[in-house]
Nucleic acid binder design. Structure first.
Lengths: 343, 343
DNA sequence: GTTGGCACTCAAAGGTGACGAGTGCTATTT
DNA sequence: AAATAGCACTCGTCACCTTTGAGTGCCAAC
């Protein structure tokens, strides 16, 4: 889908896209001629615009309104027109400060990052925690909470913690639990969570384990503990999207909010981005989010020292301030990667 | 603010409130006379309605519309008119099932509860986790994650887990961390988190501790670990509120969503409910949530075996189906209490 | 190739009047 | 004296119309 355009057409298209991003109103030929101090009359611009419309880059909502960029136009815009803004010193400061300040483990950092993204972009921030499964196992522990109830705590080397309540058939003494823990910690040292899980399953079939009651118990408990729940995902700044005029109507918004309550959808979407490096941009239907709502998504992945991969980004209207959001997402991903690699 | 009303006035008021709850439209005199098969003409109803308006229980948006209940009317309605529906067998089944199914510790249960509340009421469900602080301390543990980085894990007897990343000045060997943990676990056995915190602070001034380097380190770490973050709060079903006609306008909704992003506000609100037993109902301005938005809140507290208290409830429009939501909240609170007391 | 001019289109905004739901008052019935 | 029927009145809603103006497309002129 290569688009060939003369320099002038490009210039005009850029002007239209940026105008529309700024105002959310269809932009007319005279507005382009005036605002951009091109040495062109509106009539000429009109001719060019007619061309662009024919090429599927613009549409008019009706005959006597201005024109609106299509998805294709946004695509072209971000691919070859947009002049990326620098991330300002102040923004950098904010990103770094927020990354660091949060005290409460991995979740805390990521949640704070999501909030920062939302603040700086004025759209929604979204962060998907690195999948636990490829993290390296660090520690497992069983704590007796009460009669026949124990809490399993699983810690990865990145500080991600997962805990799970387990009901047991018999009551276990703390010493037993300690021995189980030691046994498992020994067994799973250095493995990733996925590997650990496999190891547990093979061990369970092992003859020796089957005769040692305590060991078989330990294996069964740990099998529950390493079964990973759905990934953590942080979406912040949902209210901000209401500022966008195109979402001021209730039906539209409902669609979006419902999409987001199904966090699974986003997860699926984002998992696609995991493979590629650098900033990824999905415009409108490319997001395969709710059918019609004009949503765009700018994401980048971040990595940790143990090579697990997470995702962060910004969700906003197609009519989004790409020139400033793209660098922010990029920079934030770098910072988070650096922070998480300092282990 | 006692309101004295004749039986007939009460009946009519009830009819109006319920009609309005059902339709969200101002209700007129003839509608009342007809729908309720009272042996009264619309003219008579009009007289009564004029009375009720004088008493501040009704308002008319304009001369020739029907009338709308005021906050005061809702208050009176829930205090002395409403006929509570039974919780249906099916609803009970759902509540119980959802409470139990969730595997992932306390947070999981509470989140699921919030979702269930939202589903059954068709409004928003909200759950505030029992404040950790009055929970009994169970276990503390330090895990070395990497160079000069340790993870502190604090577990309460109810299975609530809090973890915190700590950067240390020197690198600690696992054995040291183990000894610290043992020391602290011994020291804080049987105390509540609050008491444990105090204990730590007094110990830190203790001479003996000041000379034992390891001990003083342990105390400093644990002090960070027991410092409680903001309470956990689960709000589910935010999209549902968009179904309510009175919130179909964007400005209204924005107000609400912003209020909820500031979870602190809700927390403050809910903490008031903690003291009282049974179902609490806050109507409109009583919620002291966003000034104007017509929001009501139905809450009940739940308790755990260790006597910590959490809050759950439903947030909806003032025009809410009180007769069915109140029993649902009540029943859910009882179930959650029972579930959490089974330790 | 660019431009000015002009006829044309169409949504948005404003105005008008019929309609009807609902009220308040009063005279009348029970 | 309480309940009702009747009636004039109010006022928002709806359907319909006109006006306005931004914007287009096309053509003839530069």
């Amino acid at each position: 889908m290569e688009v060939e355009l003369s320099a002038r057409s490009r210039q005009i298209l850029e002007a239209i896209v940026e105008d529309y991003i700024a105002t959310a109103e269809p932009v007319g030929s005279s507005a382009v001629a005036r605002r951009h101090a091109l040495t062109l009359s509106s009539a000429t611009v009109r001719n060019v615009m007619a061309n662009l419309e024919e090429m599927g880059l613009l549409t008019s909502p009706h005959t006597s309104a201005g024109r609106i960029p299509t998805e294709k136009a946004y695509r072209f815009y971000v691919d070859s027109l947009v002049a990326l803004r620098r991330v300002s010193r102040e923004e950098k400061r904010q990103i770094i400060r927020h990354c660091r300040q949060s005290g409460a483990g991995l979740s805390g950092i990521l949640k704070e990052t999501s909030r920062t993204l939302s603040q700086l972009s004025s759209y929604m921030g979204v962060v998907v925690a690195p999948s636990f499964t490829s993290d390296v196992f660090r520690h497992i522990e069983f704590i007796r909470l009460g009669h026949r109830k124990i809490l399993a705590i699983l810690v990865s080397s990145k500080g991600a913690v997962q805990n799970r309540l387990i009901e047991t058939e018999v009551d276990h003494a703390p010493e037993e639990l300690l021995r189980m823990g030691n046994y498992l910690n020994e067994m799973m040292r250095g493995l990733t969570i996925t590997q650990a899980r496999e190891r547990i399953l093979t061990e369970m079939k092992n003859e020796k384990a089957q005769y040692d009651h305590l060991m078989s118990q330990a294996l069964r408990f740990s099998e529950q503990a390493v079964t990973v729940e759905s990934d953590e995902i942080f979406i912040e700044g949902q209210a901000r999207i209401l500022d966008q005029p195109e979402f001021s109507d209730a039906a539209r918004m409902k669609e979006i909010y419902e999409a987001f309550e199904q966090k699974g959808i986003i997860l699926q979407l984002l998992s696609r981005c995991m493979t590629a490096d650098g900033v990824q941009i999905y415009i409108g239907s490319e997001t395969s989010l709710s059918r019609s709502a004009d949503i765009s998504l700018i994401t980048a992945r971040f990595v940790t020292s143990s090579n697990t991969v997470g995702m962060l980004g910004v969700i906003g209207p197609t009519r989004m301030g790409y020139s400033s959001v793209i660098p922010i997402v990029d920079y934030t991903a770098r910072m988070v990667s650096r922070l998480l690699s300092e282990t």
